[in-house]
């Protein structure tokens, strides 16, 4: 499956490589867009030294960790949220007559590498934060674990977003609340949010495991909401449950697909 993915992605990349100028331009602009979120964090911290109990560098750590997961998924699976476009254009039928899962084909459709710039930008922020924060290195093993957990969660969210568009074909924008909304949510320490909201994104949709819970462990801090210590390690389990649900939702979406009348 991974092999098929990369073969498909490579074919698209080769097709896009026919226009190198556009490729570099889009890569650079991608970095600039992603940098806007960092700019906002810096503007906020130009006015204060701590936000809801977290310093600038701690926030950059949380931002960087979530953003690495997010941008990798943005690069590799974000095309899943074009389901509605494909349904309306009647092009989804084509994916369904091929011997490879529609999910894989949609994810790679028109793949282009320009989003790699954002991954590098997120990686740079995370690297900076790790360099300046005085971390307990015995806890550093959690960092790769949390990044991978985050990728699984974001992939599941994009799959859910795509599945939702089978039902909400006329209102695809709703699904970006899940994907881009979750990214926005996970850029800041959850201590800024209301207790109910944090409860919801911990126990209902496990967004707290993208970076918040494991991040607290890495930073060596207690949860201001007082969740018990073992919650820091529940990320992989929560991500797997969400991935399973997303896969089921996707299957249901495909089974209820109605195609078009002509």
């Amino acid at each position: 499956m991974v092999r098929t993915y990369f073969l498909l992605a490579w074919t698209w990349t080769r097709a896009a490589a026919a226009y190198p100028a556009s490729f570099w331009l889009m890569t650079v602009f991608g970095v600039i867009i992603a940098a806007l979120d960092v700019a906002v964090i810096l503007v906020v911290f130009a006015n204060t030294t701590s936000l809801a109990g977290f310093s600038r560098d701690e926030v950059l750590f949380l931002y960087g960790a979530a953003s690495v997961s997010f941008t990798v998924c943005d690069m590799f699976v974000s095309n899943l949220d074009r389901v509605s476009q494909h349904i309306k254009a009647g092009t989804l039928d084509t994916f369904l007559i091929r011997p490879v899962s529609a999910w894989l084909q949609l994810a790679t459709d028109r793949f282009n590498g320009t989003r790699v710039g954002r991954v590098l930008q997120a990686g740079a922020v995370l690297g900076y934060a790790l360099a300046v924060l005085d971390l307990d290195w015995r806890r550093a093993w959690m960092i790769p674990v949390m990044v991978v957990t985050g990728m699984v969660i974001f992939t599941a969210l994009w799959t859910l977003a795509g599945a939702l568009q089978f039902a909400l074909t006329d209102a695809p924008e709703v699904s970006s609340s899940f994907t881009y909304g979750s990214q926005q949510l996970s850029q800041y320490p959850f201590s800024i949010y209301g207790r109910d909201l944090v409860g919801g994104v911990t126990y209902v949709v496990p967004l707290a495991f993208i970076n918040w819970q494991p991040g607290l462990y890495v930073l060596g801090r207690d949860d201001p909401f007082g969740t018990p210590e073992f919650m820091r390690f529940m990320g992989p389990a929560a991500a797997l449950v969400l991935a399973l649900l997303a896969a089921l939702a996707w299957r249901q979406g495909i089974r209820h697909y109605r195609s078009t009348g002509s």
Binding site: D93, L96, I97, H256, Y257, R258, S259
Partner: peptide
Amino acid sequence: KMLCGILT
């Protein structure tokens, strides 16, 4: 479309 699995 039912023959090729597009429609259930």
